[in-house]
Simulated scan of single mutants.
Amino acid sequence: MLLDRLNGGIAELVDRQATLSAEEATLHARTNLDAYINQLYRCVKSRRDGFAEAALLDEAESLPWLLETVFALHGRLRPYNKYLRWELESFPLPGHWNTALMPDRVRTASLRLFPAVETLARCHGHAEVFEGWGSDIELIRAFAETAAADHSRPHG
């Protein structure tokens, strides 16, 4: 801000647009979490039914929802993709999220990160989103567990 003729009023408005209120963060997280789950559900159904390429596309399409969800659960707005690394380095998220969401890692980790997203979301009071999926959520959990196990195996 180079000039604020409103004695800080313009700076306050700019700051307000860059952050989420607690109510906004809750609503934003809940909405995006449901979309993330929906896209992962499409992914795992494609995997289950033998459509590997479709599953990869579905998982890739879940990434924006994943990022929106995790940032909202931390009371923040998701940065543009080109600023994601800078944002995480300049304003780190707590715990493993900073590393997990780095562009070189997250692009293939949406399904693997599901258990961590579920834990984080439940800690923030969003259990009903998962419960709303009924037994279908178990399919995502099973494939997420397999994806995590496959990722942790040495490749050789």
Score class of each variant (00 low, 15 high):
residue 33 L to A: 01
residue 156 G to K: 11
residue 108 T to M: 03
residue 15 D to M: 15
residue 155 H to T: 07
residue 137 I to W: 02
residue 72 A to Y: 02
residue 15 D to A: 15
residue 40 L to Q: 02
residue 8 G to A: 08
residue 58 D to Y: 07
residue 110 S to E: 05
residue 124 H to N: 12
residue 26 T to D: 11
residue 57 L to Y: 13
residue 12 E to A: 14
residue 101 L to T: 01
residue 76 R to L: 04
residue 97 W to A: 00
residue 96 H to G: 13
residue 62 S to F: 08
residue 10 I to T: 14
residue 12 E to H: 12
residue 20 L to C: 06
residue 153 R to T: 07
residue 141 R to A: 14
residue 17 Q to R: 15
residue 33 L to G: 00
residue 132 G to L: 01
residue 80 Y to D: 14
residue 136 D to E: 11
residue 115 P to F: 12
residue 87 E to Q: 13
residue 134 G to C: 06
residue 68 E to G: 02
residue 108 T to Y: 04
residue 3 L to D: 11
residue 10 I to R: 14
residue 35 A to T: 07
residue 18 A to R: 13
residue 8 G to R: 07
residue 116 A to M: 05
residue 135 S to P: 09
residue 52 A to P: 10
residue 144 A to R: 01
residue 153 R to A: 13
residue 141 R to K: 11
residue 55 A to F: 04
residue 20 L to P: 08
residue 64 P to A: 01
residue 32 N to W: 05
residue 135 S to T: 12
residue 133 W to V: 03
residue 3 L to S: 11
residue 133 W to K: 10
residue 88 L to G: 01
residue 50 G to M: 08
residue 47 R to A: 05
residue 81 N to Q: 10
residue 142 A to N: 05
residue 50 G to T: 09
residue 61 E to Q: 14
residue 122 R to T: 11
residue 143 F to V: 10
residue 15 D to Q: 15
residue 135 S to V: 12
residue 35 A to Y: 03
residue 129 V to P: 02
residue 155 H to A: 07
residue 156 G to C: 08
residue 99 T to Q: 15
residue 77 L to E: 03
residue 128 E to H: 14
residue 144 A to D: 02
residue 82 K to W: 12
residue 27 L to Y: 11
residue 149 A to C: 09
residue 134 G to F: 06
residue 15 D to T: 15
residue 154 P to V: 04
residue 52 A to W: 07
residue 113 L to N: 00
residue 12 E to F: 08
residue 98 N to P: 04
residue 24 E to L: 09
residue 90 S to M: 06
residue 39 Q to E: 14
residue 90 S to L: 04
residue 45 K to T: 13
residue 146 T to S: 07
residue 99 T to G: 10
residue 152 S to T: 12
residue 32 N to H: 08
residue 118 E to Y: 02
residue 4 D to P: 01
residue 128 E to R: 15
residue 128 E to I: 07
residue 86 W to R: 11
residue 113 L to A: 00
residue 107 R to T: 07
residue 3 L to T: 12
residue 20 L to Q: 09
residue 93 L to W: 12
residue 48 R to L: 09
residue 106 V to K: 00
residue 12 E to Y: 09
residue 68 E to Y: 11
residue 28 H to I: 00
residue 132 G to H: 02
residue 1 M to E: 12
residue 22 A to K: 13
residue 10 I to N: 11
residue 2 L to A: 05
residue 126 H to D: 10
residue 124 H to D: 08
residue 8 G to E: 12
residue 96 H to L: 14
residue 156 G to I: 08
residue 12 E to C: 08
residue 41 Y to W: 15
residue 15 D to V: 13
residue 47 R to F: 06
residue 61 E to M: 14
residue 16 R to Q: 15
residue 59 E to D: 08
residue 154 P to E: 02
residue 104 D to H: 09
residue 31 T to P: 04
residue 27 L to F: 13
residue 36 Y to G: 00
residue 22 A to M: 06
residue 32 N to K: 03
residue 155 H to I: 05
residue 19 T to M: 08
residue 25 A to Q: 06
residue 132 G to W: 00
residue 99 T to H: 15
residue 121 A to Q: 01
residue 139 L to G: 03
residue 55 A to W: 04
residue 117 V to S: 00
residue 50 G to H: 07
residue 38 N to Q: 06
residue 135 S to F: 10
residue 17 Q to V: 15
residue 42 R to K: 15
residue 83 Y to C: 05
residue 145 E to C: 11
residue 116 A to W: 05
residue 61 E to A: 14
residue 98 N to T: 15
residue 35 A to K: 10
residue 142 A to T: 06
residue 6 L to C: 08
